[in-house]
Amino acid sequence: MGLAGILGVTPGLISQWKQGVRPIKVERCVEIERVTNRQVMRWDLRPNDWWQIWPELIDHPDAPPIPKSVVSAIPDGLIPGPQGLGSFSSEVQRG
């Protein structure tokens, strides 16, 4: 069974996600990560906003860097840390 069947969606929707025609819903990203046994990670599916949706992943050792344009706009010390928006990280990759 393919990914579309596992997720209960049409192959056409999967194609639209791949082509960037339709964004992948946040809930689907977590589900896709789970059903692919982390072969596909949430940050791969939402590269432009994953750190805003899942700030707990920012300090994950495999997390991609947050884009320079975003990091440079955030004042030092105000980058969400692994505990979410209530904590802050100094470990974020700047650059």
Rank of each mutant, 00 (worst) to 15 (best):
P47L: 02
I32F: 07
P80F: 05
I58F: 07
Q39D: 05
W50H: 07
K68L: 14
C29S: 04
H60V: 07
P55E: 00
A73S: 14
I74Q: 12
C29F: 05
V35Q: 05
L78F: 13
V70L: 14
L57H: 01
L57D: 00
A63K: 10
V40L: 08
P64S: 04
K68W: 15
I53F: 06
W51G: 00
Q39P: 08
D49R: 09
V35I: 12
V40M: 10
A73I: 12
Q83A: 13
T36D: 02
M41Y: 04
A63M: 12
W43N: 00
E31I: 05
I66C: 11
P82T: 14
P65V: 09
E33M: 08
P82D: 11
P65Y: 06
W54G: 02
E56H: 13
M41A: 03
P55G: 01
E33S: 05
W50L: 05
I74K: 14
L45H: 01
E56D: 14
L57V: 00
C29W: 02
P82S: 11
V35E: 01
I74S: 07
R38A: 13
Q39S: 09
I74V: 13
V40S: 03
Q83C: 11
D44N: 08
V71A: 11
W51H: 02
T36E: 09
I79Q: 05
V30F: 06
M41I: 09
D59R: 08
V30L: 08
R42W: 03
Q52R: 14
L78R: 14
R42S: 01
V40T: 06
V40F: 11
V70K: 13
R42K: 13
E33R: 03
Q83N: 14
T36G: 03
W50S: 00
L78P: 11
A73D: 13
V30Q: 06
V35L: 10
P65H: 05
V30W: 01
P82W: 11
A73P: 14
Q83P: 12
E33D: 06
L57I: 02
R38S: 14
R46F: 00
L45A: 01
G81E: 09
D44C: 09
E56V: 14
D44A: 07
G81M: 11
I66K: 05
P55M: 03
W43H: 02
Q39E: 06
I79T: 09
P67L: 09
P80A: 13
P82K: 11
W43Q: 00
I32C: 07
I53R: 03
C29A: 09
R38N: 14
V40D: 00
H60S: 08
E31N: 06
S72F: 15
G81Q: 09
P55R: 02
P55Q: 03
I53M: 06
I66V: 15
A63L: 13
P61I: 09
Q39I: 08
W54K: 07
P75Q: 10
A73E: 15
N37M: 13
E56W: 12
L45Q: 01
E56M: 12
I58D: 00
I66D: 01
R46Q: 01
N48F: 12
N48G: 06
I53W: 04
I66F: 10
I74E: 04
V35C: 05
T36Y: 12
W54C: 05
V71R: 12
N48H: 10
D62P: 11
A63E: 03
